[in-house]
Simulated scan of single mutants.
Amino acid sequence: MYRFILRRIGQSIVVLFIVSVLVFSMMRWIPGDPVVVLLGDEYSPEAHARLQQQLGLDKPIVIQYLIWIRNIFQGDFGYSYINHTPVSSLLYDAMLPTLSLVIGTLIVGVLIALPSGMLAAVKRDSPLDYFSMGFAIVGYSMPSFWKGILLIWLFAVTLRWFPSMGYVHPWESPGEGLWRLALPSLTLGTFFAGLVARITRSSLLEVLEQDYIKAARAKGVRQMALVYKHALRNALIPVITVIGLQFGTLLGGAVLTETVFNIPGMGRLTVTAIFNREYHVVQGAVLIGVVFVIVVNLLVDIAYAFLNPKIRY
């Protein structure tokens, strides 16, 4: 088990290196010059050269990359020349709202997906099955920005149950923070639940057709005990895989949801930084996002061993 974890950590380091090289290179390939963004339309060649030297953009790209990596290992993600703030502070302030939204989305999605997927599998080809899968398809296929606008119109404007937009840290004001996260989490959570519910149904149906389940049923084991004690544990392995893979999708999909609900998260920060050609902000945001995705997928792999001990070997 420990050897497996160490091997995965080694693979993760290689992935981080490749991603850092790609992001660093692509930011310099896209059109636009951060020096021009700072100086405006009217500038002299001397001012351009002087500012380029101050930002370290006059050095070869390989030297720039090595300097950036060295600073990353020292905890220095660079400096935002638009906000006049260290990039680490911007990333910290933006990551907390995004993580709150993603965690809320995972909770909402799992609470919707697992019961509906299990009921659809147990009540196969029944009206409940058709309703659950129809809801899953609608939730998964509807664009998140459109779904968010509909939820704002229904629950914030018409019924006035929830605030339409804004963000408050849940640890500063738990009630207000969770209240404001309800609609954004429901927006992304129904998308997430749509996929997980379908995977749960198909995986549970496959397990219920196994010989050991048929033998247990022949011995008189009740249906609920058959599902919860014998079938669900094995059926959860592909479900957990999808949840881990969808974590990265949720980080990317949070961009539109954060824009609709005016949440100051990583999505808005990254998009704004791309338009302003802030290399350090984009590189740091992508690198932090990749680290979170790698850690979540490592935890998913470790969870396999607890769900099915045979996987440990």
Score class of each variant (00 low, 15 high):
Arg70Ala: 14
Asp301Ser: 04
Ser25Cys: 12
Pro45Ile: 06
Val23Thr: 12
Tyr43Cys: 07
Gly40His: 11
Leu90Thr: 00
Arg222Cys: 11
Val21Asn: 02
Val157Cys: 08
Ala235Glu: 05
Arg277Pro: 04
Thr200Gly: 08
Ile149Lys: 05
Gly117Glu: 04
Val239Gln: 00
Asn83Trp: 12
Phe306His: 08
Leu114Met: 09
Ser203Ile: 06
Leu188Trp: 08
Val286Ile: 13
Arg8Leu: 04
Tyr43Val: 09
Gly40Lys: 09
Met118Thr: 15
Ser88Gly: 09
Leu6Ile: 14
Leu298Ala: 05
Glu278Ser: 10
Gln64Trp: 07
Phe306Trp: 15
Met266Leu: 14
Ile13Arg: 06
Lys229Ala: 11
Val21Thr: 07
Gly10Asp: 04
Arg28Ser: 05
Ala197Cys: 12
Thr249Ala: 11
Leu90Phe: 01
Ser116Tyr: 08
Met95Asp: 01
Asp211Tyr: 07
Ile274Val: 11
Thr259Phe: 12
Lys219Met: 10
Asp58Gln: 11
Ala218Cys: 13
Gly40Pro: 10
Ala121Ile: 07
Arg233Tyr: 00
Leu178Phe: 11
Gly177Tyr: 01
Pro45Phe: 06
Arg160Asn: 09
Asp41Tyr: 10
Asn234Met: 08
His48Met: 13
Leu186Glu: 01
Thr105Ile: 07
Val300Trp: 04
Leu195Lys: 13
Leu154Trp: 11
Val23Ile: 13
Gln246Lys: 10
Val255Phe: 03
Ala156Gly: 05
Ser202Asp: 10
His169Tyr: 11
Gly117Ala: 10
Leu178Ala: 03
Val23Leu: 04
Arg28Tyr: 03
Phe292Asn: 01
Leu55Gly: 00
Tyr228Asn: 13
Ser203Pro: 06
Val15Leu: 09
Arg277Tyr: 03
Gly265Ala: 03
Pro97His: 02
Leu208Trp: 11
Lys229Glu: 12
Thr259Val: 10
Asn83Ala: 14
Val35Lys: 01
Trp179Asp: 01
Phe145Ile: 06
Val290Asn: 04
Pro31Arg: 11
Lys219Arg: 15
Pro238Lys: 00
Asp93Met: 10
Gly194Cys: 07
Asp58Pro: 09
Gln11Tyr: 13
Thr98Glu: 01
Leu154Ala: 12
Ser100Asp: 13
Arg217Gly: 14
Leu269Lys: 04
Tyr140Ala: 15
Gln74Ala: 15
Phe145Cys: 01
Ile67Asn: 13
Tyr212Cys: 03
Thr158Met: 10
Tyr228Phe: 15
Val15Asp: 00
Gly75Phe: 09
Thr272Met: 12
Ile294Ala: 02
Val157Gln: 13
Ala47Asp: 13
His230Cys: 08
Ala231Ile: 09
Lys214Val: 09
Glu209Arg: 15
Thr272Val: 07
Tyr228Arg: 14
Met118Leu: 15
Val14Gln: 06
Val291Gly: 04
Thr190Trp: 08
Tyr279Ile: 13
Leu114Glu: 03
Leu99Ser: 01
Ser116Leu: 15
Leu91Tyr: 02
Val37Ser: 06
Gly56Ala: 02
Phe306Asn: 06
Leu188Cys: 07
Pro115Trp: 03
Asp129Ile: 06
Gly265Tyr: 00
Asn234Glu: 09
Ile302Gln: 06
Ala225Lys: 14
Ser185Trp: 00
Ile103Pro: 02
Val255Ser: 01
Leu178Asn: 00
Ile63Ser: 07
Ala225Asn: 15
Asp58Glu: 14
Leu250Thr: 04
Val296Leu: 05
Glu176Asn: 12
Tyr2Gly: 15
Arg50Ala: 12
Thr98Ser: 12
Tyr79Ala: 01
Gly75Lys: 04
Leu159Arg: 03
